[in-house]
Design a protein around this nucleic acid. Structure first.
Lengths: 116, 116
DNA sequence: CTTACGTATCAGTGGATAATGATATGACGA
DNA sequence: TCGTCATATCATTATCCACTGATACGTAAG
């Protein structure tokens, strides 16, 4: 194993970190619950709070995060702000993860390295 | 928004948390680097350390995590232990995330909610 | 049996971050 | 204009978790 090998095989570090960051965006239960709520419909913050059981400030904070990441878009309507998924492929990623878990039945839940 | 609505639309909490945990598995730069290294080939811990630049104990720790989660499999060969991806769809997920970032040019890097 | 090597585990530590409560901003209705 | 509602921001706190260095375990070679 040499440095040359590393440079040959490794994707650009930028890409690596960005992808990791994208997955981290999906990897928080609160954010994933929000995205789940948005898979079917555009929803207001209030509705999202109702669906997810999150506190309002907490939901707002995560929505800001998802917005910054480009995972959702925002539309103001009077006093309401309605959010929706920015790209259909985000729903695809979420669905694929679900299928992987369903069919593979892998031991994600038993992994003690991080709590989940 | 009623409790009934929530129960109608929300996926099972177990599933939600499991999917989030799966994404978190992919959402650490070190683990993603390891998985990247395994996309093309089966590799020993030593080789993985060389590819990723991680410390050996650190790599071992993440590999244990990935193994527990069922994302990689393990095969002993003398003193060596060789790891590979457990399922082709894991590579697919990683690739899809890369495509999403490439085409969408979304602001994942600018999101300040978490550092990445 | 002793040494060298590959891998795994453990305890300690620092840094990151999700949740909460209080509060600010902004829009609508009376 | 005043009060109410929807959303966003801020500071605090407590928790989590990735990394490091030391070390243990197992295998092969001499």
């Amino acid at each position: 194993m040499t440095t040359q090998d590393v440079q040959d095989d490794l994707p650009a570090p930028d890409t690596l970190e960005l992808r990791a960051k994208l997955f981290r965006g999906l990897g928080d239960p609160s954010r994933l619950a929000i995205l789940d709520a948005l898979v079917s419909d555009e929803r207001s913050v209030q509705e999202i709070v109702g669906h997810t059981g999150l506190g309002q400030p907490n939901a707002s904070n995560h929505l800001r995060c998802l917005l910054d990441c480009g995972l959702v878009t925002r539309r103001s309507e009077g006093r309401f702000v309605r959010y929706r998924l920015a790209d259909g492929r985000i729903a695809d990623l979420i669905r694929d993860a679900g299928r992987l878990l369903a069919s593979n039945a892998n031991g994600v839940d038993t992994c003690r390295n991080y709590t989940g």
